[in-house]
Design a protein around this nucleic acid. Structure first.
Length: 559
RNA sequence: UGGGGCGUCGCCAAGUGGUAAGGCAGUGGAUUUUGAUUCCACCAUGCGGAGGUUCGAAUCCUCCCGCCCCAGCCA
């Protein structure tokens, strides 16, 4: 066992620097962090940044990270979300062990501490209405006014607070407020609400409570109870820190956690607000929280994005305090990088065009060998049937090709991957003038894909045998939003009408639909695909995770 | 015009007084039975601006400019 100080191998950032300095100074014997979602929605890739930060720091510095549900508002929270959050954190690759907690576990202690605040004349029950409180809070530039109930006696406050808890008053009738400073420049210090009356059923505590602590009151104290050393949250809580510290100082808490803030993740072509995501689902713009176009963990998972790619992504973007918008291309790079390394290759034709090899014997079938991964021989090989009739990609044939088009066109010769060189003789068209079949000849000497005479072809194309291939549905996804910086206020206007394209008569090699593996695959020259959860051998359905980099398309786009 | 933050390459982001890391994107080129991958090269005399201190400043000081957050009994 080494006694060397633990040094993070991952990218350094200002928070890890603080943790390291705290360790070096001997301020803590163990680093404790926490990931504290409110169970009021599904986790998204922005949460992944926070999860990786909190769990990552705990791992790197030999501490632990708690999963804590910040369930202080029963009107918004549901068990469904508690369950999905746990599943998603696990899927991302992090484990809280036994350390799963709920703010609601601490309601009794929080309540007792609140009475303590009252006894110390640091909190009071305010009878003002919500409107009155708002009206007397002041503005950004003007101080607020003290509540007429601010100087109630301790006895009266205690009595009222207990009756609040006992359920004597309706929602909104009274609140418990901290007595701080109505003239503070920091609005969070203008007598913030600590408890409100909410006659609502809580997913964990049921109907036991009808008063609930506010975030500000519950969060820091929960941290302290759990022995959290570094309470990491996003930038918008910066001005809550003085209140966080005030409560920690005034209350008899068992430890003194400190809050640090970092910038939340923003992505181009993406909206991550819970409000928007919820509305996207509710209004039917997507098929659900796990629609593969959603930036939710569930969506990314169903889309086929490997958790390792997300971890790599959040590692690469770093942690800082500057508001920023990360190019979604960065995420896509990480997905391709991971999938290129791990996904086995297969052949599938998304938009089939029939090819008949005129000089190939009618009825003959032979088996060709294909490698499963070009850079990983241990992935092995497989056999693919080859016959007189095949399918190739529609895009791979052009009757009147522009310059720089290397694929098949009348008179040109190309290679069918793992098979033969073929040469196009003629294109057969239907009445509408569309090419429906391509007649070719093959060179038997090029079996396996090489010409004994050393002649070269400029293109190698994927293909699938007509008789042995299977029909499949392939869902091709593009950005959900067409605008690189979609409007959160009016997101519907920025939706990409072409975010989903369903190809119902794709043709895939049999190995793709056989077996029970749900591993991602690369359909050669197309991209990476996974079986959708709706997949059955009888009705195979695939999702395209992401396309391959396509410099040819880019070239064409330029022209 | 109150309080709290932030401004380094198209996008992230190191840098903490010693002469601008890295990644993504982009651009050239090599290899290639995926127009993929891989590899190699190029890509900030400049760090929001203006002054100042210093032998030396992205880093220190002054002033200015811009952007973000806060007036929920949401988190």
């Amino acid at each position: 066992m080494s006694t060397e100080p633990v040094v993070a191998e991952a990218g350094r950032d200002f928070i890890r620097d603080i943790v390291q300095a705290d360790l070096d100074a001997g301020r803590y014997k163990e680093i404790v962090t926490r990931f504290p979602p409110e169970p009021n929605g599904y986790l998204h890739i922005g949460h992944a940044k926070s999860i990786a930060l909190n769990f990552g720091i705990a791992q790197e510095f030999g501490g632990h990270c708690n999963l804590r549900f910040d369930d202080t508002n029963p009107t918004k929270e549901e068990q469904e979300y508690i369950d999905s959050i746990q599943a998603d954190v696990h899927w991302l690759g992090f484990d809280w062990g036994k350390n799963v907690f709920y703010a609601s576990d601490y309601f009794e202690r929080l309540y007792e501490w609140a009475e303590g605040l009252i006894r110390g004349s640091l909190a009071y029950v305010d009878d003002q209405s919500q409107e009155e409180i708002r009206a007397t809070r002041g503005t950004l530039t003007e101080p607020g006014k003290n509540s007429p109930f601010r100087d109630r006696s301790v006895e009266e406050n205690l009595d009222l607070f207990r009756r609040m808890r006992a359920g004597e008053f309706p929602n909104g009738a009274r609140v418990l407020r901290a007595k701080i400073d109505m003239a503070s420049g920091n609005i969070n210090l203008r007598d913030p609400v600590l408890y409100r009356i909410l006659h609502a059923h809580h997913p964990r505590t049921g109907n036991k409570w009808c008063i609930y602590p506010s975030y500000d009151y519950a969060h820091g104290q929960s941290d302290a109870i759990e022995g959290v050393t570094h309470s990491i949250c996003t930038l918008e809580f910066e001005d809550h820190r003085p209140l966080y510290d005030w409560l920690i100082e005034k209350l008899p808490v068992p430890s003194r956690p400190r809050q640090y803030e970092f910038a939340r993740l923003n992505l181009t072509y993406t909206l991550l607000s819970k409000r928007v995501l919820t509305q996207l689902v509710r209004d039917g713009h997507v098929a659900g929280w796990d629609d593969p176009r959603m930036p939710t963990m569930a969506g990314l998972k169903r889309r086929g994005v490997p958790p390792a790619a997300i971890r790599e992504f959040v590692k690469r973007i770093g942690v800082a305090k500057a508001n920023s918008v990360v190019d979604v291309g960065m995420l896509e790079f990480c997905i391709r990088e991971e999938l290129n390394r791990t996904a086995q290759r297969r052949m599938a034709v998304l938009r089939p065009l029939k090819v008949v090899i005129e000089n190939y014997p009618e009825g003959q079938v032979e088996e060709l060998e294909a490698v499963n991964h070009p850079d990983d021989p241990s992935a092995g090989t497989r056999k693919i049937a080859f016959g007189r009739e095949l399918y190739i990609e529609r895009d791979d044939f052009m009757e009147n090709p522009p310059k720089k088009f290397f694929r098949l066109s009348p008179g040109t010769e190309v290679r069918l991957r793992y098979a033969y060189f073929i040469k196009c003789r003629e294109a057969i068209k239907n009445a509408a003038g569309e090419v429906v079949e391509v007649r070719c000849t093959y060179d038997p000497a090029t079996r396996g894909g090489n010409a004994p005479d050393g002649r070269k072809v400029k293109a190698t194309m994927h293909w699938v045998p007509a008789a042995q291939s299977r029909v499949a549905e392939v869902r091709v996804y593009n950005q959900l939003f067409a605008n690189p910086s979609p409007s959160a206020a009016n997101f519907a206007a920025d939706l990409n009408p072409e975010s989903l394209e369903v190809l119902r008569d794709a043709r895939v090699e049999p190995s793709i639909v056989e077996g029970s593996s749900n591993e991602p695959m690369q359909f050669e020259r197309q991209g990476y695909f996974v079986r959708d959860r709706a997949f059955t051998p009888e009705r195979p359905v695939f999702n395209r995770t992401i396309g391959l980099r396509d410099t040819f398309a880019k070239e064409v786009g330029k022209g």
